[in-house]
Amino acid sequence: MEVSRGRHWLNRTLLALLGIAGLAAGCWVAVAGLDARGQLPFALPSWWPSGHPRAAFTDRLEATGLRDHGWWPAAVLGCLTLGLLLLAGWLLAQTGPREPRRLHLPAPGAPARAKPTPHAPTLRTSALSGVMAAQVTDLPGVRRARVRLTGGPRRPRARMTVVLDAGADPRAVLTALYTGPLTHARHSAGLCHLRSGLRLRVATPGTRRTR
């Protein structure tokens, strides 16, 4: 399934940074503890900080006298609030791309990428995605389908999950999907391209369609 580039790189960068931080902190504490026990099988290099990381951290904090300042509690509160907001934003970003309420249609006769005029015609997104889902479900070999149009009102992107019948032919379904519903939707929305990410899977024996 195609994913939006931004979120993918944000997630991967943050995961890598957290991973490096966890690895460094874990190694530091473990090596310092084992060294203090005398169980470390190798000698530490000369630049390695002596003492336990926790002691180093608290000593340095005490030495700077930061906690005696009047603004210290406020700074702690601010940092915690900022951290909570950023983390909550990161969590919300995982809920998936938004669907615009309406799609902009190009004015009749205008080129597809012309700027929309104030009274440009629009199309309700759920109307188009509903029609697409119905058309996909009507294709032979398709049991059910879910369609979402994400990516913005001007350049929508179709995301589809298609559940096939047990004996279906995925290649034929993909071709029919492209020549049928996708092309139809592309014409309806007046687009040159309709970028689409399709996910096909076969219904498990347990899922039967009720009628």
């Binding site: 399934m1 195609e2 096939l164 995925p170 993909l174 492209y178 996708l182 391209h193 309709l194 970028r195 689409s196 990410g197 399709l198 996910r199 096909l200 899977r201 076969v202």
Partner: peptide, 10 residues
């Protein structure tokens, strides 16, 4: 413009 995937289990 089309990207399609098929589940491995399917």
């Amino acid at each position: 413009s089309v990207r399609a995937v098929l589940d491995r289990a399917s």
